[in-house]
Design a protein around this nucleic acid. Structure first.
Lengths: 206, 206
DNA sequence: GTCTATAGGCGGATAGAC
DNA sequence: GTCTATCCGCCTATAGAC
């Protein structure tokens, strides 16, 4: 999402704020950085968004939703259980390859202000998601599967194996001596590995 | 590691800096916070450590090492492969239950300054660790096992399933509607689940 | 070694011209 | 709507007394 001179000022501010906040976090970001990135003056930021905090919250809420969008889409789909899982792994991996800083941004800010995030999550369609989780869970338990793992643990395994390597990339690359291309290959290769492991260890009734 | 009035000033500063930096990060931490936490004056911080940056780097390096200590200990042990894995899962899970903010701290700062972290990792006994990885890998490949997964992927799976749930705790707890105790139980229950999954999906020759 | 006081600069926010 | 100029508080760092 590159900042384009064709965009309206408001859109340019939003794009710039996304870039700077996701890169530096709330505490590390400077209003001047955002203004520079947007190609406007600092004062104009305050004209559109009263404070740094307000601007940040708009961005954060959008990014938090972004992180769960694929999950919601998959939960709503009509695919059979195994296909739901495969499809989610595929889509989420691709999203994170394109925006690798998304999860570390959301997670660090979540640690900085867990109460705010908890309140936010409650305003999102979290009950709806829970309902769909239940449905998903029922599908898994009804199918011809091994029923081995509590449902929460299954979800945590899935999210962990998809998201963590991206979050830990700055450690993994030097530790394993990988360059960008090696790492991208590793991530691509993971898709089928994660799928295999998850479908061998499906949820059972809680 | 509570700050005790019995400690020397230097130790009090170190403990306080760990507390504040791991909680707020480099950009979010204030020298005044650290001074207050240590029960001393701000100026004294600069007497012991010339700058905020120096103080931070001392803490960060220690925390980075802490995150890999268990791995190193296990790699050096004489246990058979399966026992090495089980023992690591146990020890690392316990460490993270005691210091849950450790990984998010290291990871967010690693994203803030990947070049610094890469240089740091190179000064650590990283080659030694690589050697031991190879040894571990050889053990796995020699044993009576399924040889299914590339070694790097195996290591990433292990680290992901142990560390990610702790990192994502501020999202997982509200999403699943868990309190502290529920979450602790979930983590305890994970130990055997992770162990089972990993030992069913061991590394093969690369 | 430890303190008080303060320098010096940065950064968020606002006033006011255009 | 957009800019320049500026205010003011905060924060790192240092000077200097004890």
């Amino acid at each position: 999402m590159p900042t384009s001179p064709d965009d309206s000022t408001e859109v340019r501010i939003q794009k710039a704020a996304k870039t700077i906040f996701t890169r530096k976090g709330l505490a590390g970001a400077r209003m001047q950085d955002i203004a520079d990135e947007a190609g406007i003056n600092k004062a104009l930021l305050h004209y559109y968004y009263r404070s740094k905090q307000k601007l940040f919250e708009m961005i954060f809420e959008e990014k938090l939703i972004e992180l769960f969008t694929n999950l919601q889409v998959i939960l709503e789909s009509d695919l059979p259980f195994d296909e739901k899982i495969k499809s989610f792994i595929e889509k989420e991996s691709d999203l994170l390859s394109e925006f690798p800083s998304l999860p570390i941004f959301v997670l660090s800010e979540a640690w900085q202000n867990p109460d705010y995030v908890e309140r936010l999550l409650q305003t999102l369609p979290i009950k709806l998601i829970r309902e769909k989780f239940k449905k998903l869970h029922k599908e898994a338990a009804d199918g011809d599967i091994t029923h081995e793992i509590p449902f929460h643990q299954f979800m945590i395994n899935m999210m962990s194996m998809i998201i963590y390597p991206i979050v830990a990339r700055p450690l993994i690359m030097p530790l394993f001596g990988l360059d960008e291309k090696d790492f991208a290959n590793l991530m691509e290769q993971r898709k089928s590995i994660i799928s295999k492991i998850l479908l061998e260890n499906k949820p059972k009734d809680m």
